[in-house]
Write a protein that binds this DNA or RNA. Sequence first.
DNA 1: CGCGAAATGTGATTAAAATAACATTGTCAT
DNA 2: ATGACAATGTTATTTTAATCACATTTCGCG
Lengths: 240, 240
Amino acid sequence: MNDRSAVRLTRLQQALAEGGSLRLAEAASLCGVSAMTIRRDLAGADGELVLIGGHLMRADDPRHVPAYDLAVQRDRHAEAKRRLCERALATLEAGDTLFIDCGTTLMPLALSLPEDMSLTVVTYALNVAEAVSARPGVRLWLLGGIYHGSSRSFASDDMAETIRGFGLNKAFLSAAGVHPRQGLSCFHFHEVAPKQAAIATAQRRLLVVDASKQGLVRPARFAGLDDIDEVITEAAPQRP
Amino acid sequence: MNDRSAVRLTRLQQALAEGGSLRLAEAASLCGVSAMTIRRDLAGADGELVLIGGHLMRADDPRHVPAYDLAVQRDRHAEAKRRLCERALATLEAGDTLFIDCGTTLMPLALSLPEDMSLTVVTYALNVAEAVSARPGVRLWLLGGIYHGSSRSFASDDMAETIRGFGLNKAFLSAAGVHPRQGLSCFHFHEVAPKQAAIATAQRRLLVVDASKQGLVRPARFAGLDDIDEVITEAAPQRP
DNA sequence: CGCGAAATGTGATTAAAATAACATTGTCAT
DNA sequence: ATGACAATGTTATTTTAATCACATTTCGCG
């Protein structure tokens, strides 16, 4: 890759930095070269930009990781989570103040919150916040702190205290492990405090887990099964 | 649109809810129908899903608002901001703790932070947080609170106090208006407290504004020009 | 200036996707 | 059963995008 090519690439990358897509021809005229040159630039680049059906866009955001052969597995999970979250949605009432836990399990819930119900969502997860921020009708309170990429969530010393300051109607909790005796656990210790605070504060505590978490124990225990009011899950996997 | 068609569409929509794209053929086999049927489903749908070059993806994604005829104007802005942020980047030093203000001006900065410099970023803007969260080498502290969609940022009562608790080396500030006598202003009052706290706390205060903001006064004044140590801007527009 | 190498443009060719047309299957009411 | 209609599949056609081969331009350098 040569110098001018690199200049064009960074230029395009910046043009697309804030999102959006560019038609190949537009990208070309933007750089004052032909479409063929843009193609060649792209071919010699590191793959941060991607050309798909004549549209140029960034490859690095979550959008584009193609489902490929993961498709089946991904979908089994997504399908299960979707069904669980549908049931979670059904429990919502106008005026609710919800706590939504981190992880991917509750994403379908965050994505399909009704906008005509005057809801308030409290969360410490960046992905949940992104999803909820796209729903203009829903009030969103994000609990800030230091970011943990592993769970896409934030942690801070006074988070538990802040949570206790809310009048939470319902807490939707996720867990990476559910065990009859060991209770509920997750991978990361920084999730424990907010989870426990939400459990302590909310009127109604709903655990949403798919069947694959049943019987597992993870490093960080945050509650017992009896701290939960309702478990939204599939039937446990049958053992013949 | 018929029932089964609607079922397939919601199914696909949920499969894509967390991002990613599906090849048309994959989507088809996922639903157990032919590609043509998926096409027909899409044609009769409301346009939430979009098929582009054989890839199926959500349309509500910022990636797809095409730059179209806005391209030129968008780029003029993005181009200017990119250049300004390049100069802002040059001021960074290893170990810095940065405050990054909300708005779109500082996005190119957030997107191209070096990962090998041990940086910490403090921000109250969701879009900045998203951008920084994609850089594993950079520590991120998000100041939480109630979300304001207008500026994609958060506000809370104790935010100013929290900011004063950081050892900020540099504060990168944006403004919607810069006036010789009226000083610096922005559109939204909830931005005033964090901006002022950052100005009060940071060792070095850098204002990043493009020329289009010069001479303007916006509703919420947050500082005077002399509260800023350095202004990163283009030459003011010439009047012939 | 003029040569050579690299970069880019142009038009032809191939591959792929979108559309359209028609065939088949399934469903329901009579 | 069977005819009508909707839904879907299959194949052909048109349109669009990607690739290739070669012509042209640009740039550095003796």
